[in-house]
Design a protein around this nucleic acid. Structure first.
Lengths: 337, 337
DNA sequence: ACCCGTTATCGAAGCGCTTCGACTCGAAGG
DNA sequence: CCTTCGAGTCGAAGCGCTTCGATAACGGGT
């Protein structure tokens, strides 16, 4: 194994000089730098990660805590992970993969043993047991999603309020006047899940701004519930021409229910979904949708982390603007008067 | 930060004794061990990973090289990754996530810098550029899949020959006498992709053993190609009653083509697929299938790695027995004579 | 000509842990 | 009773790197 003293000897300098060439923490004359760089190249030198971590108390590794119990939408997670790894590498860091199951002990372990310098925590719950731990750990961290008590923590997520509003804007531009948001099951609203409420708020406020009639209806999973929801919706709002669906599992059943109710998409009803692009593209009628920008979230997370590691201040909350992709499920309102 | 000297002082022993308690590399009296363990617990001591790696030249980290460009069947990869992480943790190791894109340089980097002790490489191609590198790296590694030149490398995969045979056995038990294997596109066979050939070999040999009529037909992707393949198959083998499909993208089109040809599954035709369980379950008629046992592959990979790290000998090739899951797409042959 | 501030480099002191040889002590063997 | 041996413990020497003074050389201001 070639070490820093080998490089130094060959370049005719001291080890510390080599170190400074590598880190750029002190000025080095051009001539010396070149000799050192040549020496490094010729010997194929790589600093020993452990030695470096020990001496500098920086491991240049970040932990990525992922829910690996497959279940939630997996390709999206994958995209996110890929983006985290790539961005981390661009900042000369590596990524240690932790599962959600390792839980608080896992976090404490990698933090206390100085295995990692920072943490990216996915799938943060509203009342996540890890929150107090993260506060006390003394390592920079970024959370994907917003817990109830987010003060002092760096969080990032899609801007759900803006998303609700953007969907309404899109429908408004197409001439729709009466719209509904089909949201999460009642339990989710009851538990005060941040993103559900925020979407609804953005949706409602935008509808008011446009002078549209709007409703928000929770929707339980399963085909019967979907049919029931749709029946009620159509009964109470006979002139409904646009819906926004923010409920992935209910999406299929709802679409079927609309069809069964005699509504064609998009001729009679425009539909906007909040779901991964894959799902939107795969539907019978490809759906106009807003997706969670996984790659961007990953990239921004790491950048926030790097900023924190560099001692820079970063905002507590980062909300990413929604991007609506137009597909076949939305169309101008037919003026049938 | 609490360090080994703190633990030692509190337990009234020397640091080396603490180290030996932790590693078990020398015998320690029960009394001392207990005092040390108490001290560790009370102080919440965690060895510094970097220091440990430096002193012992073992990082207790394994690299997992994953194709993160989503594309291939993602949930399966996820399952595999989860299993690798979990198993590694059970052996007191962590997992560093690398992307395929980092390629050879990435491997060299983590190896030379002693960031990791061993490598798990997924998605190994037949003529993979990383093979020679892996040979020369001097780190234990396990490959998922078999490259052309596998001698001296530890590889693991589903036993495709046994899989082909198992599918035939299943059909034979149901009374089928004339079966076909619809395989990969011609290119794949031409490139001599190991698993395609092996499946075909197992399939054919088993059919012969059972005295069945059998054919192997490659199948290009796309609906028109599928229809053509099916037409030809039925023309040449009018008494065909069972097929095995080893071609994920062609699976859907083939099923449609059979339907269009007037064959009902499973009444007229029994179908066995080689594909992820998810896909098999999601089909219109749930498919009897053999899946790649991702979780088991992950677990076994890590165990092979640990064995190698411990200096034990391991077999070059590990072939996992297929497990066929019976679903609705296979049925006893109707005896219409 | 003198002092000062840069710039460029070096030497040495650790970072926290493991490991090797050496040492002690009590029990077993002659 | 003295040797021998193994079990149990300690001290010290690194592992390969970073970083903190210290030092020297060299202008520039006055």
């Amino acid at each position: 194994m070639v070490k820093i003293t080998d490089v130094a000897r060959r370049a005719g300098v001291s080890p510390s000089t080599v170190s400074y060439v590598l880190s750029g923490k002190r000025s080095i004359s051009a001539a010396t730098r070149q000799r050192v760089e040549a020496s490094i190249r010729e010997l194929g030198y790589r600093p020993h990660a452990g030695a470096r971590a020990l001496a500098s108390s920086r491991s240049n590794v970040v932990a990525l805590v992922m829910p690996l119990r497959s279940g939630v939408h997996v390709p999206v997670q994958m995209q996110f992970a890929a983006s985290v790894v790539t961005t981390a590498r661009a900042h000369d860091h590596d990524v240690l993969l932790l599962t959600q199951e390792e839980g608080e002990d896992g976090l404490r372990r990698v933090a206390d043993s100085a295995l990692v310098d920072a943490l990216v925590v996915m799938d943060v719950q509203l009342h996540d047991a890890r929150i107090p731990l993260l506060r006390s750990l003394g390592l920079p961290s970024v959370l994907i999603g917003f817990p109830a008590e987010a003060a002092g923590l760096t969080c990032i997520d899609l801007d759900f309020a803006a998303t609700g509003a953007e969907c309404v804007s899109h429908l408004a531009r197409l001439g729709h006047r009466c719209v509904a948001l089909l949201g999460s099951p009642p339990e989710v609203y009851a538990r005060d899940t941040g993103f559900a409420r925020r979407t609804a708020a953005g949706f409602t406020a935008a509808a008011r701004r446009y002078g549209m009639t709007s409703t928000v209806l929770p929707c339980a999973p399963g085909a019967p519930a979907a049919r029931e929801t749709v029946d009620r919706l159509l009964r109470e709002h006979p002139d409904l021409t646009g819906v926004v669906v923010h409920n992935e599992p209910a999406l299929g059943p709802l679409l079927e229910a609309f069809q069964r109710a005699g509504l064609r998409v998009p001729e009679d009803l425009s539909v906007v979904a909040l779901c991964p692009d894959e799902l939107a593209e795969g539907a019978a009628v490809p759906l106009t949708s807003v997706a969670l920008p996984a790659a961007e979230v990953g990239e921004r997370s790491v950048e926030l982390l790097m900023a924190k590691l560099a001692g820079r201040e970063v905002p507590d909350a980062t909300l990413l603007p929604p991007q609506l992709t137009e597909r076949a499920s939305t169309a101008p309102r037919a003026h049938v008067n």
